[in-house]
Simulated scan of single mutants.
Amino acid sequence: MSDQQIGGTISSAKVKVERSNKKEVLIFQIKIKVVDYDGHGFKYCSVTRNIEEFEGDRNFFDLPVVSLDYAEKSNYLKGLINENGKLFFDLAKGTHYKSYEGSLIRWKQVGGCLVVETIKANGRVMINQQP
């Protein structure tokens, strides 16, 4: 939801057919195993990325999934992912008081469907995870 780059291990990949606007679309679906924290402990979860069939050439880096080995800034991305992971693990346990400027992203139910809602959120934040 946050459009942050994540790192993980591909757990499965398959081609599937979906119907869109009364026509069939081929999709290459990739499931990626990542580490998450649910407030009680760390766990593996899956993130799914879809690549729709397309005509002609497309830049490799415009796809939603890029092998880290082939990324133009591989070392930079590895460092960024590691830094974000360390920060996540540091904040995941205990109580922390932080200042935040940016957007709050959450799921909202509208007419029986879940949609992503973005809200301006500038202020103080308390992160509190009880063991």
Rank of each mutant, 00 (worst) to 15 (best):
A13S: 10
G41Q: 14
V125W: 10
Q5G: 00
G112V: 06
T9F: 10
C45N: 10
D69N: 15
K14T: 06
Q4S: 10
F89V: 04
Y100I: 09
V65P: 01
F89G: 00
G39K: 11
S11V: 12
Q130N: 11
R49P: 00
D62E: 14
G39S: 11
Y76L: 14
Q129V: 04
N128L: 04
G94T: 06
I127N: 04
I127V: 15
C113Y: 15
G8D: 04
K78S: 10
K120A: 12
G56R: 06
V17M: 12
G41M: 09
V34H: 05
E18Y: 05
E117V: 03
Q5T: 08
P64C: 09
V34P: 02
G123I: 07
G56I: 08
N21E: 13
E53L: 06
K16E: 15
G112C: 02
S103W: 10
K86Q: 13
V116M: 14
E83Y: 12
N84K: 14
E18C: 03
R19K: 11
K108F: 08
V65Q: 03
P131K: 12
E101A: 07
V47G: 00
G94Q: 05
I105H: 08
V116S: 07
G102D: 11
D57M: 01
Y44I: 01
A13W: 04
Y97G: 00
K120N: 09
D62N: 09
N59F: 08
G112S: 05
I27P: 01
A121L: 12
I119K: 08
K73W: 08
L91N: 03
V110S: 04
L104M: 09
I51K: 02
E18G: 01
F42M: 07
R58H: 08
D36Q: 05
I119H: 05
K108M: 12
E18Q: 12
K22N: 15
N50T: 04
M126R: 15
I10Q: 03
S12L: 03
E83F: 10
V34G: 01
Q5L: 11
N84A: 15
F54P: 02
D36R: 02
L68F: 04
K31D: 15
K86W: 08
K93V: 14
S103T: 12
N122Q: 08
S103K: 12
K33H: 01
F60L: 12
I127C: 05
F89I: 03
V66F: 06
K16D: 02
Q109C: 05
F88A: 14
V17Q: 13
W107Y: 07
V110C: 02
K16N: 08
G85L: 09
C45K: 07
N50C: 11
F28P: 00
I27H: 04
V110M: 06
A13R: 06
K78R: 15
V47T: 02
K22E: 15
G8V: 02
G41D: 10
R106H: 13
K14D: 14
I27Q: 05
S12C: 07
S11M: 04
V34D: 07
L77M: 13
K22V: 04
S99V: 06
M126Q: 12
T48A: 13
D90E: 14
D38V: 08
E18T: 10
F60G: 00
